[in-house]
Design a protein around this nucleic acid. Structure first.
Length: 304
DNA sequence: AGGTCGGCCTGGCAGC
DNA sequence: TGCTGCCAGGCCGACC
């Protein structure tokens, strides 16, 4: 079996989806989808599994692309199968003799014309799929949901400044809003804010140009590091312990509550921002004055 | 209209 | 020990 992607640790964000795309593309591009079997109707609701199959079956895969956290199968004649892994979705590439209906959490099976299968496995059933007919329909779908792609030249300091201007929302919520910047999730938001030395409660519109520049660089660096790290661990994915160590070591503050800050040694705290568990060094990332009176802590009661 | 919040979903685990 | 119930969070839709 060739495992592609993992959700053993953390939620698939841009780097993980990109890793999946990189690994999967050579196996599916140029192949024909013999059968799309959606075994869990929730996956494509409100559309019916048969509708998706009718649109997709028998078509050749021209390209596997990524936009934000979406994985896009572009088939012949502008048929687009758009997948989202959400929280616990995972894609596996397997041979026929490794495939079975008994596999736990199997939601979708894509049978290719070479006998191999791509399996969408998802314990929590948050993952989704939709078929969009026509390039315009795809463009509309993505444009309604996603903003700037952060690993492109379009993600400039000027662009970030324009997005941030006048916004009163906390910067963490801003980073998680896919309609502004596409692909940043909870992990990389924490990592980028730490690198840029910005507190997650900081009001977005009050950030100085220098801070916005630092944040832009930090987002790009964090995502790029995530892609590198993912690539490094994908090969020994079957070795759970090996994958785990390498993956977590890359993160500076995320999920490191109670540990010393890697820069200054102050204990990393867990807060709640934008409804998410949020990790911060409040010496490196000083809490903004306006937020100091707000609830000082989230789910954690123990603060060293 | 921009911002906030609950619902979706289930494995894992804290707490009784 | 075994059960209950809460937590995790990306995205969407309801609400203010």
């Amino acid at each position: 079996m060739t495992p592609v992607g993992s959700t053993l640790l953390g939620v698939p964000e841009l780097p993980e989806v990109e890793t999946v795309r990189t690994q999967l593309a050579p196996a599916v591009e140029g192949r024909t989808v013999e059968a799309l079997e959606v075994r869990d109707p929730l996956w494509c609701s409100p559309a019916a599994p048969a509708e998706l199959a009718a649109a997709v079956n028998g078509r050749r895969v021209e390209r596997l692309a990524r936009r934000g956290k979406y994985l896009i199968w572009t088939l012949r004649e502008e048929v687009h199968l758009v997948m989202h892994l959400r929280m616990t979705g995972n894609l596996l590439l397997v041979d026929a003799d490794e495939d079975s209906d008994e596999r736990s959490y199997l939601r979708v099976r894509v049978r290719l014309d070479d006998g191999r299968r791509v399996l969408f496995v998802d314990p929590r059933r948050f993952g989704t799929g939709i078929v969009l007919l026509g390039d315009a329909a795809l463009a509309d779908y993505l444009a309604a949901r996603l903003g700037i792609e952060p690993l492109t030249p379009e993600f400039s300091v000027d662009a970030l400044r324009a997005l941030a201007k006048g916004r009163r929302t906390p910067i963490k919520a801003f980073l998680l809003d896919q309609r502004r910047i596409a692909g940043v999730g909870n992990i990389y938001a924490d990592e980028a804010l730490f690198r840029a030395r910005i507190h997650p409660f900081r009001e977005t519109g009050t950030l100085k140009p220098r801070q916005l520049a630092a944040l832009r660089d930090a987002v790009v660096e964090s995502l790029a590091l995530g892609i590198d790290s993912r690539g490094a661990t994908i090969d020994d994915f079957r070795d759970i312990d090996g994958a785990r160590g390498s993956f977590q070591d890359a993160f500076l503050v995320h999920r490191r509550e109670g540990e010393p800050c890697p820069v200054c040694g102050r204990t990393i705290r867990k807060l709640r921002a934008a409804g998410r568990g949020t990790y911060v060094c409040e010496r490196c990332q000083p809490r903004p004055r306006a937020a100091r009176r707000a609830a000082p802590s989230g789910t954690s009661s123990k603060v060293a």
